[in-house]
Amino acid sequence: MSAPLLSVRELGVTYRVRPGGSPPWARARALQAVRNVSFDLAPAETLGIVGESGSGKSSLARALIGTVPASRRQALWQGADLLAMGAEQRRPLRRDIQMIFQNPLGALDPRMTAGEIVAEALTTHERGLPRHEVRSRAAAMLERVGLLPEHMNRYPHEFSGGQCQRIGIARALIVGPRLVICDEPVSALDVSVQAQIVNLLQDLQRDLGLSLIFISHDLGVVKHIADRIMVFYLGRVLEHAAAGELVRAPRHPYTRALIAAAPVPDPAVERGRQATGLGGELPSPLAPPSGCVFRTRCPIVRDACADEVPAMREVGEDHVAACPYDAG
């Protein structure tokens, strides 16, 4: 692997929360949204992150773009530690790391036109650019993501969800980032439009040599776009492998359950595997189970699982899983 663009070591995100209804003098409890996450991302590579709600995948994204504080160790961006930087030091680097958000309409300021939204990103990083050039570059970028020049003057609420997401992509790409973090970029879209956006992201990545971190709860979408996939559960990484391998030969029982839960649009296949669902519910992230976080729902749980957090184990070439037992 070439020198990593981003290398994250033992990153954690902790929120202080007060449970609802508690008195104001009660001590805030620590919610560890992300614990001990490490990975490397090479240039032009796509890392997929899969997890259910509350798994901490969005918190990881926000820690990387710096809108929530991260704790522990470091996140090296081409050798410079992002987590050690102050807001002012960080600002020029924001150009390199951009984000695409889950809610296509919600991520656009309702009082600004599409053109203004895209132009703002540009003028933030290239001050003093002449107006006509800002305009023409914004128009070119909107066209690149599949919108028409006359869309420039329209407001977000006049666009469909898919079009709004295209504006969000244009805003992220106009500053020329090296890494784009996509936080559930298609989960709010209709199936037919989802595919358009995924294909667009793939094209842009190939043409511009971007690295992507693609976060989704939908393993089907992630498998399609990602080179490697990390599986998150309650703030921890349970398995990390090349995309094809992860889906073909999952080693962690949770990954297996996720694959089993992904619907297949084929009645014959679906009816044949109805019995394999996972029981139980996601435990509260405020009080995660001791030891292995998945043990409360795990089909192959053993007594030892409650005692200590299972270490990442090499289970294949470039394939690690946090389960000492091979489900076979």
């Binding site: 199936v191 595919a195 995924v198 089907g220 498998k223 694959i259 297949v264 649009p265």
Partner: peptide
């Protein structure tokens, strides 16, 4: 619509 569903298989 059926074709647009991303499939694991």
């Amino acid at each position: 619509l059926l074709d647009a569903v991303p499939r694991l298989d």
